[in-house]
Design a protein around this nucleic acid. Structure first.
Length: 100
DNA sequence: ATTATGACCGAAG
DNA sequence: GCTTCGGCCATAA
């Protein structure tokens, strides 16, 4: 299975109300330095119906990019009950999802 | 094969 | 706090 597939698979595991970081995904795949590549993977392959890629944010708490625009991403996160201010998640720690 | 790009990260100013 | 910069790595050109 290729890189992009594995990424999407992990992302589909993130429960509502939780988020994961690009770095976190990368690490769960075995290499913390893949963070940038992870972002790329989500950008090219998007399956909004099956993969909640809006739940993937930057490790510094900034919401980060989204294919359909940053505002759309924020909106969805808020809908999940996550607090955001000035493009940054408040208290990222308490939402973070850790992969099994 | 080589180069450019991007939904990133951490350290430094 | 913020901005800049170098380093990362999988894709696309």
């Amino acid at each position: 299975m290729d890189f992009t597939e594995s990424v999407l698979m992990r992302v589909s595991l993130i429960p509502k109300g939780n988020v994961a970081t690009y770095k976190g995904i990368a690490t769960s795949l075995g290499d913390p330095n893949l963070s940038r590549a992870v972002g790329n993977a989500l950008n090219s392959n998007l399956d909004p119906e099956n993969v909640p890629c809006y739940r993937v944010v930057r490790s510094d708490g900034l919401v980060g990019g989204y294919r359909l625009g940053p505002s759309a991403k924020e909106k969805k996160l808020r809908a999940d009950g996550i607090k955001i201010m000035k493009g940054r998640i408040i208290g990222l720690e308490r939402y973070l999802f850790r992969f099994p």
